[in-house]
Each structure stands twice: as structure tokens, then as C-alpha cells.
Computed example of a mutant assay.
Amino acid sequence: MKKILTIAGSDSSGGAGIQADLRTFAKHNLYGFCALTVIVTMDPDNNWGHGVFPIEIATIDSQIRTAIDGVGVDAIKLGMLPTPEIISHVAAKLEVLKGKQPVVVDPVMVCKGDKPLFPEHAEAIKTQLIKHATVTTPNLFEAAQLAGMDKISSYEEAVMAAQKIMELGCGAVAITNVGSVMEPKTSADLYYDGEELLLVEGAFIDTHHTHGLGCTFAAHVAANVCKGYSKRESVVLAKEAIRAGVKHHFALNQYVGTLNFEESFKNID
């Protein structure tokens, strides 16, 4: 059984973060390790407001060493790294590994409106992490931040962003939800590896029950890469799984809903 490490946050509501990653890895028949970087909670008495509690770097380091030095892993997936210091520490770990394992970077950015809440956080991801990515999976907001653009409002701007992100040194980029800025609206994602530009199509599903979508998509990409699929195949297969899951979405409570994990995994090898 191949082994994969997720370095990411814990989502106390269960739909995203390490919970989504490990569930996805298990369905792919992979052995999942985890290194917790932050605990995220939700306040049911305050409109589901989020609490963010970073883990000490020494504790994160011990978890990473448990997986990589103690056993060994075949792939790594990065999720929420809540501070520039944690980003720098994880980046230093990847620098030592020097591409021994494929790495999928989900460049999770804490944001408010259309501006980053912590600009230095986005900058650290851009300058220190993306160069280590076999594939990076930003959403539209994150892609704009990585590309140094104010926002992405069209397919043409998404292509421009993908080209700029590739210049940061990653192996491929998959910008999610590009179809939402196209006409007619779809759920298409944009894949680019420096040579091939591919719009991975999907019919638009009108729902706000998308909690954990980005984490789960990146986890599928990481699992597929770990299993030996090409970057392109990994993204296309991940899209198919997410499409099935969103089609059968459901509510968790009055504030948030998520994709149906079981539907996502029906066609997984």
C-alpha cells in the first residue's frame, strides 16, 4: 500500500482539512499520515464564525518527522498553513526532500472580501511553496494572489494567471471554478502545465453546499499522483470525483453544506 502525508489543518465540522484528506486517501486505498498545522472551529452561536488555532512549529515538525523519517511516504499534500513561519518551516522541509516525492499544494489563503487578510501569508505561499508543487490547485481568489493580479474576471484572465503561476516554478496548475466567470456559467477548471492548456468542463450546479470542495479536490489530485497517474490525468480524475459529489450535495446545518463523499468515490479504482 502506498503512503501519503497531508500537512494541513483540522476542520472541526469534518468537511474540509485533514478530515477530508484522510477520508479521500482511504477511499483511494492509500495509507494516510497527517501533520496537523492548525485547528479550525466554528461557533454555532455566532453565524458559524471561525476560530483559528495554530499548532506550535515544534509539534508540526515532530509529526512530519514521524511520517517522513519514521516510515517514508510516496507523496505529500499541503493544505492550510496558518502563518508565514509555518509556511517557511514546511518549505524548508520540502527543500531538503528535493523532489523525492510528488507534492500537491492547495494554497489555502485566509481572506476577507476580495483582499487578503494577511498579505504576508499569501506572499510566503507564492515565494516559498509553489516552486515545490508538482501540481498546485488554487481557486480564483488564490490564483489571482499568486499571479499578482487584482482579481480574475474572465477565462482570458484565468489563462494569464495560470501562465504567471507556472513562472513560479510549479509543475502544473489547476485553477478551480474558472467556469463561474465564463458565459454561460459552468463549473469548469483550468489545467496548465506549461505546454497543454485544458479546460476541464463540467455542468454548473447551483448550490452553496461546497464546504471542503477545494481540500477534497486537491486530496484527489494528490492521491492520483501518488498512485502513478500523470499530472493531467490526476486533475481530470479529481474533477470527475468532485462533480459526482457536488451533484449529490447536502446541508450540514443552516450555515453550511458539503459534497456527498460516497458519491465521489463510487468510481475510484
Rank of each mutant, 00 (worst) to 15 (best):
D114I: 01
H132W: 12
H121N: 08
I165Y: 10
A174N: 13
T37L: 08
K231R: 14
G179D: 13
G169Q: 02
S234C: 06
F265T: 11
V71Q: 10
T83K: 12
D43V: 02
G245W: 05
W48N: 15
V235A: 07
E123Y: 11
N29T: 02
V225E: 07
E120L: 15
A174L: 12
H89Y: 15
P138C: 10
A241K: 10
Q128G: 01
S12K: 02
A188H: 08
H208Q: 14
T66S: 13
I86P: 06
P107A: 06
G113C: 07
G49V: 00
K185D: 02
A143D: 07
A174W: 01
K27Y: 02
F33M: 12
P84L: 02
I125G: 07
I242H: 00
C34N: 13
P138A: 09
K98A: 15
V178W: 11
A144Q: 04
F250S: 04
H208L: 03
D150H: 02
L5M: 10
N267D: 14
P82M: 09
E156F: 01
L140S: 03
V108P: 01
L259N: 07
G32Q: 04
V104N: 00
V235W: 05
K131Y: 03
A67I: 04
T83C: 04
T41H: 02
H28L: 06
T134Q: 09
V225C: 14
V135K: 05
Q145K: 14
I87P: 08
Y229A: 08
F141K: 08
E201K: 15
D106N: 12
L197W: 04
V110R: 15
K126P: 08
T37D: 02
L78E: 07
F141Q: 09
A75M: 09
I125Y: 15
T41C: 03
M42W: 05
T216K: 03
I39C: 10
T6I: 07
N224A: 09
T127M: 06
Q254N: 14
G179Y: 08
T127I: 11
V256R: 11
